[in-house]
Design a protein around this nucleic acid. Structure first.
Lengths: 228, 228
DNA sequence: ACCTGAACACCGTTCAAGT
DNA sequence: ACCTGAACACCGTTCAAGT
C-alpha cells in the first residue's frame, strides 16, 4: 500500500490556521462584537480557534493581557480630530476614546488595571502630548496630565459596567442614588441640599465638564520640583 | 420516654449565630483581613458561616453588593482631618480614603462599578461637601467635584491591583512602562522626549498632584447652565 | 521546540424542596 | 416565611505528556 499524499485528516475543515498572537486577538474581537466581552474567555476563545485553552498561554500571559490587546486593536479605529483649537481637539479625541469604551465597559475595567502597551495606545498618548504641547502646557504637567485624562475617561466608562449588561439596571437604578435622595437632612444637610446637583447632568455633560476641569487643573498646577 | 429539653444537636458548636446582613459583612471583613479579598467569595463566606452559598443571597443581591458593603464598613475607621485649611483637609481626607483602598486594590476595582451607599460613605461625601463649601466652591461644582475626586482616588487604587498581589510584579514591572521607554523617537518623538516625565514621581506625589489639579480645576470650571 | 489533553481548584447564581 | 442542598453552567491556569 502506497503512502498517501492526502492530508491525514479526512474531514475537510476550514483549514485551521496556525495560531498567532494577532490571530487570537482578532478572534477575540470577533467574539466580543458578536457576543459581548463576558464571552471572551480563554476557554471560549480556544473553542473558537479549535484548540485547548493551554495553547493560548503560548501567546498571552493571562486574561488581562488579552483584554489590553483587544483595546489596542479597537484603538486602531480612532481617528485623530482635525477641527477646532487644541482644547477642542483634546476633548474630541478623549470623547472618542471614551465612546469606544462605553460600548464595552468591561474592557474599561480590565484596562484600568492592565493598560494596553500596543502601537495604537502609544499613538493616542503621542497625539495627546502633541496637543498639550500646542496648548503650551509645560512638559511635566503634560506628562502627568495625559495619565489623569486617560484615567478619567477609562474610569467613567468602567462605571457603566454592570449598569448596562442587564436590563435590571433601569428599575434597580443605583443604590447610591436612592441613598442620596433618602438621606436625613439633619445628619447630612449638605447632601440633602445638593441632592439635585449630585446626580444632575447627562453622562456627556459630566464627561465634558470632567475633561475641561482636568485641563484647567493641569494648566494651572505645577508638578513637584523633585519629579520635574 | 420523656421528650428532652436538650437541643436536638448533640454537638456543642460555637452557637452558630443567626444570619444577618451585618454578620455576613463582618465575617467578610474578617476573611479579607486574614486571607485577602480574593478569598472573599460567596462560597468561602458561606463555609465560614457554616451554611450554603444560597443562604447569603437572602441578604445580598450579588458579590458586588458585598464588596461595596465591605468598603463602607472599612470607611467607619476613617477619621475626619482636623488641622490646616480646607484644601489640606480635603487632601488629607482623600489620602486617607485612598490609603484604605491601597491595602485592598481589588476592593477599589469593585467599588468603581458598584459604589457603596452605606452610612460611612454618605458621611465621607457630606464631609467633602462641607469642606468644599468652606472653600467657597459653588454648589454645582462641589457636587460634581466630589464625584471626580472620589473617582480619581478609587481609580488610582484600582490601578494597583494585580501589581501587588503577586511578587511577579517587580521584575515583570509594566508592559506599558517598557513600551514607553523602547519607543521609536521618529514615530513617537514626544513620548521619547518625555519618557522620563511620564513615569516620574512617587505614587504619593502623583496622587497629591492629582488632588490639587482636580481642586484647581473644580474651582475654576463652571458646570453647564442646564445642569445647574 | 512547540503544542495541548486533562486535570486542579475553584467560581456565581438559581431553584426545587425542605422546615 | 425563611432557609438551603444540590445542581447548572461555567471559569483561569498549570503541567505532564505528546508530536
Amino acid at each position: 500500500m502506497q503512502p498517501s499524499s492526502e492530508p491525514r485528516s479526512r474531514r475537510e475543515r476550514p483549514a485551521k490556521p496556525a495560531l498567532s498572537r494577532a490571530g487570537i486577538v482578532g478572534a477575540a474581537v470577533g467574539v466580543m462584537r458578536a457576543e459581548g466581552l463576558q464571552k471572551v474567555t480563554m476557554r471560549r476563545l480556544a473553542q473558537e480557534l479549535d484548540t485547548g485553552p493551554a495553547s493560548l498561554y503560548v501567546y498571552l500571559g493571562n486574561t488581562a493581557e488579552l483584554h489590553a490587546a483587544i483595546l489596542d486593536e479597537l484603538l486602531g479605529t480612532l481617528r485623530p480630530p482635525v477641527g477646532g483649537d487644541w482644547r477642542e481637539r483634546v476633548e474630541d479625541l478623549l470623547t472618542g476614546y471614551t465612546a469606544l469604551l462605553f460600548e464595552h465597559p468591561g474592557l474599561a475595567r480590565s484596562v484600568l488595571v492592565s493598560r494596553p502597551s500596543g502601537e495604537h495606545y502609544l499613538n493616542l498618548i503621542e497625539t495627546l502630548l502633541a496637543l498639550l504641547d500646542e496648548g503650551g502646557v509645560p512638559a511635566g504637567q503634560a506628562a502627568w496630565g495625559v495619565d489623569i485624562l486617560l484615567q478619567h475617561a477609562t474610569a467613567t466608562a468602567a462605571e457603566q459596567s454592570g449598569r448596562d449588561e442587564s436590563v435590571v439596571a433601569q428599575d434597580d437604578w443605583d443604590a447610591l442614588t436612592r441613598a442620596l435622595h433618602g438621606v436625613d437632612r439633619l445628619t447630612h444637610p449638605r447632601i440633602a441640599a445638593l441632592s439635585g446637583h449630585l446626580i444632575s447632568g447627562t453622562p456627556e455633560e459630566r464627561l465634558s465638564w470632567g475633561f475641561n476641569t482636568l485641563l484647567n487643573g493641569v494648566l494651572g498646577t505645577p508638578t513637584p520640583p523633585g519629579a520635574r
